[in-house]
Computed example of a mutant assay.
Amino acid sequence: MPRSAESTAVERVLRRHGFEEIGEVPAVPAAGALRYRRAVTLEPGAEPWYLRSSGTDFTILPRPWLRRGLRRCWSLGRDLDEGGERDGLLLAQAVEAEPAEIRRLAAVLRQDLAGAVTGLRVRTGREHDQACLWLSAHVIGVPA
């Protein structure tokens, strides 16, 4: 996927806040460690799979990666949402021991990403028995 000035700015912001880039995985089996919001059934065999899609109901930071020390990651790639396919979907996830750190991170990312993304959604909560942040947005300037 070609990078735009905005996607380069997004990458700088995320790296500055300790996020590591992971590859785009457009579809994963439902039995795996990664999970996206959109679930579909693939034929033959009627296997359930998740498709990379916008929204904050996903897991791109599975527990085994946490054990290896990865605490914050992001991915830029396709959105395979119900409305069709387009490039430029940013997904990011962070896990911290302290909820206050996750709330601080959410606030600073909202501010730092303004102007470079549209449809920014940030959710905080708990996953893997720790405070967690999920972020979803479309990067401006990435061709559809």
Rank of each mutant, 00 (worst) to 15 (best):
Y36V: 08
V13K: 04
L76P: 01
D112F: 00
V25W: 04
D87V: 08
L61Y: 09
P62L: 08
C132G: 11
R63H: 14
A9V: 07
L66G: 09
E101W: 05
V28K: 03
P62N: 09
W49M: 11
I102S: 04
R110I: 03
P62S: 10
H128T: 03
T8F: 07
L70M: 14
P143M: 06
E101Q: 14
T59K: 05
E43G: 04
P44F: 02
V40A: 11
A33I: 06
V117R: 00
R104M: 07
G45I: 00
I60C: 11
W134M: 08
V139H: 01
T59M: 13
A107R: 14
Y50C: 00
W65R: 13
L113A: 06
E127S: 13
R35K: 15
I22G: 08
L34E: 10
E101L: 15
G88T: 10
S54W: 03
L109Y: 01
P143D: 11
G84C: 12
G84W: 08
V25C: 11
T124S: 13
L91W: 00
A94H: 02
L109K: 02
H17Q: 13
P2F: 02
R35W: 03
Q93E: 15
P2I: 11
P62Y: 05
I60R: 05
H17S: 10
C132V: 12
L90Y: 00
